[in-house]
Design a protein around this nucleic acid. Sequence first.
DNA 1: TGTACATCAGTGAACGCGCGTTCACTGATGTAC
DNA 2: TGTACATCAGTGAACGCGCGTTCACTGATGTAC
Lengths: 206, 206
Amino acid sequence: MDESAARTRNRRGEGGRLRADILAAATALLEETGSEEAVTLRAVARGVGIAAPSIYAHFPDRTAIVDAVVDQTFHDFTALLRQAVADESDPAERLRRGCAAYLEFAETHPQRYRILFDRREPAEDDPDRPIASIRKESFEFLADAVRRCADAGVSASTDPFGDATAIWVALHGYATLRANMPRFPWPPHDATLDRIVHGLARIAPR
Amino acid sequence: MDESAARTRNRRGEGGRLRADILAAATALLEETGSEEAVTLRAVARGVGIAAPSIYAHFPDRTAIVDAVVDQTFHDFTALLRQAVADESDPAERLRRGCAAYLEFAETHPQRYRILFDRREPAEDDPDRPIASIRKESFEFLADAVRRCADAGVSASTDPFGDATAIWVALHGYATLRANMPRFPWPPHDATLDRIVHGLARIAPR
DNA sequence: TGTACATCAGTGAACGCGCGTTCACTGATGTAC
DNA sequence: TGTACATCAGTGAACGCGCGTTCACTGATGTAC
């Protein structure tokens, strides 16, 4: 996203590259301004260094750009979660790592995290872009981790689904409040994570 | 907020009544649309049934309207919290009632709750409108309740501040996720409240 | 190897819209005499 | 009790702005012959 550089035209057959540039500019704009409304078609075009109408070759309208950012973000988010727990067989550590990765993503990309979870979902899901299912999927990830702890006897949970829900809301609340209140005297990251994992997943402290 | 009714002009000396009407319209607009950006000066004027410039007699600019809604909301919120725990001497029940009131406000006025906690605070607080202090104050309310539990020996907490923080983020996460995901299979309200109060405030189940 | 041409990536000007804000104003209401 | 007048609550028209979107276009790039 270099606004001043004169963009060199893509070669034939490489027009698709502009799509990636548009997406990158939109993502940067969202992350910088912290506002979905700031991601205007014209602002994105300025970010890429192209004329506004050029975007229409790659996206049907403004909302499609934002939607694409959401899709990309969801992909990045779940990939990070999956990667964080890969190769971890100890169920308690697995849960902890998953939670830590969740918070890490939210801290590294606060606005992209917001766009995933901080908007109200529609009464009925668009079959093409089921935001509710997307959210539920990342929740299921958590529920699975708690279930493993319960199955292994590491957690005293009698209701993994309910406990996973509690963990989820705590993670979400921590992620958003922490981003919104940088000057609050937050306890150390690890201490809060401990509270959440031990207190809510009913795992005894190590 | 009746858009069609022809508004009868306020009598002399009662011009201030329009201020209240503007505030009410702005609040209704925010609560209906769920978007701060939707609270435009012109939309508010339409809601009240007046010409847009009439607002300038009562508010210096658009942001002042939103600020006034925030101030009013903060007042309503803390008043509800205070009232919820008045006359309750049992510390555990006091904490529980405080948490329940917190969630109740967020559920009844989801968008007004959002406007309090779901925006990033500025790097430095405006001395006239210290949003950080406002938030901290409602948090202190929670910290005080946890402290009372610890002092009374009802809670096993060794760090009331840290535990109150954990409760706070869980309440906030629950409030916002619940509002954003009406179709998620939420466990019963009471069960989640129990998890939060018992698991995070370290109070043994009754 | 040269050239005419189709294709593709991207542009510039223009549109109508709603916005925040300003300005000069209007007309009902109350008050002084 | 009547009337002139100041005040107050609120208006209508206009401004410049950035927006999303449309339209006809341009000019470089590759290709067919």
